[in-house]
Simulated scan of single mutants.
Amino acid sequence: MTRTVNGERLFKSRDKEVLRKMIWQIADFSGVEVLTYCVMSNHFHVLVRVPCAKAVSDQELMRRFRLLYPKPTKYQEASAKVLESKLQAGGEEAVAIRERLLVRMYDVSEFMKTLKQRFCVWYNKSHERFGTLWAERFKSVLVEGKGNPLQTMAAYIDLNPVRAGLVEDPKDYRFCGYAEAVARVPMAVLGLRAVWVDVVAGAGAEDVLRAHRMLLFGKGACPGNQPGHVISREEAAHVMEAEEGALPTSIALRCRVRYFTDGAILGSAEFIRTYVDAWQLERGRKHPPKVNPVRGGQWGDLAVIQALRRQVFG
């Protein structure tokens, strides 16, 4: 966890969105696994699993290097090509390059350092400010990588917006790992799978989300757990007993498609096919669009005229 200078509430929605994307981007570069996270207006939490350092191929090194520069300048493009040619040439220089890159991977301190520095540069440039953004070095807690300690820490992080009084249900806060998992963002679902792997081994995404939701509402309804707002006991009882942690289909679908691309059509495959010609003509498409089943859940015969956005929070 790390806070802004003086705990100032600096981050608006756009800032949180950029930081959210950077968390996933830098984690991929660093080789760490994000289990869940939460970005608030003056701090953020991230729960990561750090694998042991391992050999990384030159091809993978270059892929990760380019992750840091997804839209490179001409200089950065040239730099990447030079780096790649030196790796291919081998020798002492190639060994030194590998060491410089690998030392930044599989290390939580390097992950946080890169993340905080890159976001600080972006934030200062975007808001015409200068100087430090973060108050201090990040605070870290070593968590047992299985069972109740790991699940409790994940729930604590995902409940941050509830305790702050921003939402009554953590699925409605778009800048946390649980909300991304409910929207079926693949990496977020994988993160929660890792949290629950010892309890619901071999289970599908629905079972993992149900287990995590039960825990969130159980923990969130305990006022002695953490200071701040709590989930009402009535709502917790409804989620845990009546719904057994499962989101109603209508609610789950809303979370999945809250950010449709303009012009998408939702319905049965037969219904959508009746509008394909008009949709194609209106947009001047050369080829007719495909009718795709709605993915990421048990939606029955629901389909969409074009694939749902993967970046549902973008």
Rank of each mutant, 00 (worst) to 15 (best):
D172F: 04
T261L: 14
R66W: 03
G267R: 02
G218M: 12
F44P: 01
T132E: 11
A181K: 01
T4S: 12
C38P: 05
K16E: 15
E77D: 12
D107M: 04
E60W: 04
I23Y: 01
E180M: 11
A78G: 11
P149K: 04
E180K: 04
L47G: 00
L159D: 02
L166E: 13
G165K: 08
V294S: 08
W122G: 09
T4V: 13
Q280F: 05
L47F: 01
S79V: 09
L19V: 04
L115V: 05
G314W: 15
L67F: 09
D301Y: 12
M187R: 15
K290L: 15
E84M: 09
R285S: 13
K71E: 07
T132D: 12
P227D: 08
M153Q: 10
F175I: 05
S13P: 13
H238V: 14
E17I: 12
R49N: 03
V257M: 05
E244C: 13
I231Y: 02
V82H: 04
G7V: 14
L35W: 02
A89E: 08
R163L: 07
A188T: 00
L159G: 01
L253Y: 11
G90T: 07
G165C: 07
L47C: 00
Q117P: 10
L253S: 01
Q151Y: 00
M240A: 14
D107F: 05
K125H: 15
G245N: 07
A94G: 04
E234Y: 11
E77A: 11
W24Y: 14
P149Y: 05
E136Q: 13
H287Q: 14
H43N: 08
R174H: 11
T4W: 02
N292T: 14
T261V: 12
T73I: 04
M112K: 00
K125W: 13
G297P: 07
M40G: 03
A205H: 02
L133T: 02
F130C: 14
D172G: 00
A221C: 11
R213K: 12
V143F: 03
R63H: 10
R137C: 01
T261Y: 14
K71V: 08
R283Q: 10
Y173E: 01
N42W: 12
L10P: 01
P288R: 10
E92H: 03
K54D: 06
M40V: 06
R210H: 09
V208Y: 01
W134L: 06
G202I: 09
L61E: 03
S268F: 11
K16W: 11
W279R: 04
K113H: 12
K74Q: 10
V143H: 05
M105L: 07
F313Y: 15
V195P: 00
T261I: 13
P289Y: 13
R295M: 13
P170I: 08
Y275G: 05
A303D: 08
L115A: 03
